[in-house]
Design a protein around this nucleic acid. Sequence first.
RNA 1: GCGGGGGUCGCCUAGCCUGGUAGGGCGUGGGAUUGCUAAUCCCAUGUCCGUAAGGACCCGUGGGUUCAAAUCCCAUCCCCCGCGCCA
Length: 420
Amino acid sequence: MLDPKLVKEKPEIVRKMLADRHVQFDFDLLLSLDGKRRELIVKTDELRKLKNKMGLDVATKKKSGQSADSVIAEMQKVSQELQILEADQIKVGADYDRLAMTMPNLIHDSVPIGADNSANVVVRSWGAVPKFDFKIKDHIDISQELGLVDLERAAKTAGARFYYLKNSLVRLNQALIHFALDFLTEKQYGLIQPPYMINRSSMEGAIIADDFENVIYKVQDEDLFLIGTSEHSIAAMHADEILEGKDLPIRYAGVSPCFRKEAGAHGRDQKGIFRVHQFEKVEQYVFARPEESWKEHEKMLAVAEEFYQKLEIPYRVMLLSSGDLGKVSAKTYDIEAWMAGQNSYREIVSCSNCLDFQTRRLKIRFRDKSNEQTQYLHSLNSTLVATTRTLVAIMENFQTHDGHISVPKPLQKYLGSSTI
RNA sequence: GCGGGGGUCGCCUAGCCUGGUAGGGCGUGGGAUUGCUAAUCCCAUGUCCGUAAGGACCCGUGGGUUCAAAUCCCAUCCCCCGCGCCA
């Protein structure tokens, strides 16, 4: 959610953002609702003032033994009038909120302007693309031949985009998680294993309405939703809190399964475990002071890059354009890993600065001294590792001529072997 | 799941029975006083609308009763204690 003051005072900034993002949004309606909303606030406030004054009058009269009947009769009228006006105010307020909650975040100046991902910019590349002196396979073939994934049976029991991991791939999956947690622990991140289901109001803090349709699974008959990432749980964790400035920045390493509908992804990455409804992820989530969030953003990206360098997975860093940017994010870097079997770079990390967009929705503020004005924090999130996609990269890049997989060095100790 | 207790403006707490401006303590900031420190005293310390003056809102949440609700009634969420069930 954007600062209502900014929306009112500098609408041209919002209009430019909407144009740059190429989103449909009825901003004029929002402005007119905002005007109505303010107008009704003033009117009801005045009526309440009158009512409060009369109430006092009644109390004083009664105490001194005088009759308050005429004031009470008058108050009755005012109360009725107020009730009607209040109903109006609630309706307009709700309309405004509903619309305002769907408005995307501001865009940072450094973000390239463009309609879609074709305007994304390569920031840098790391690592040499591996060369093979034999005919390489993709992760589907490799995993089938080594008995590491069963897609057919998963289709039978759960549907498309599910999988049974088997044998050493189960261990490799766990090894990635274990390594990622050790890696972030060393960097002083606090470990968090969050609720995998959260209620609607918490979920609304982290995401925008469309996502409920396209990515989030709902639990039947309960006010509960399966998280699409631990980001959702962790964002809401400090809702309605005032944090102490001395504790900032707060850096969390979230670990959880992630559940995603993948609606609208029909036909893309249909087979294999690249795009699935469920996977494990270790996530970086940071609450920072506003003036420090851009520094933290670069830091999180650097942490993610270091992780893939340790795994020796070649990658490139992309800066997403305005049209490709997620709605809650003001700036996003993706890390795309080289995937030999697909002969291309594919997304494995998304690193975003959401500014005060999420914290404003969730009322997460801070201050240095208890009598100071509170400020909204900035929140940032970045993948450290989403296991299935990294498993794809490992299987494809580390395949050997005899049809096996060599295990990246940092994972060997967790796995207890150097090949699969 | 059942029975009992509870949720008050950063933290603690009074008020609820008996409806009528939410009071106190702590913390924090400022000021006064004081060789220094400490102690003491005064003021400030939530959200929203407003350029401001000012005003409204705020007692877990949502309804209801009433001229008027922190207070009475109903529903609901969460926490604590006991019982039951349970990996």
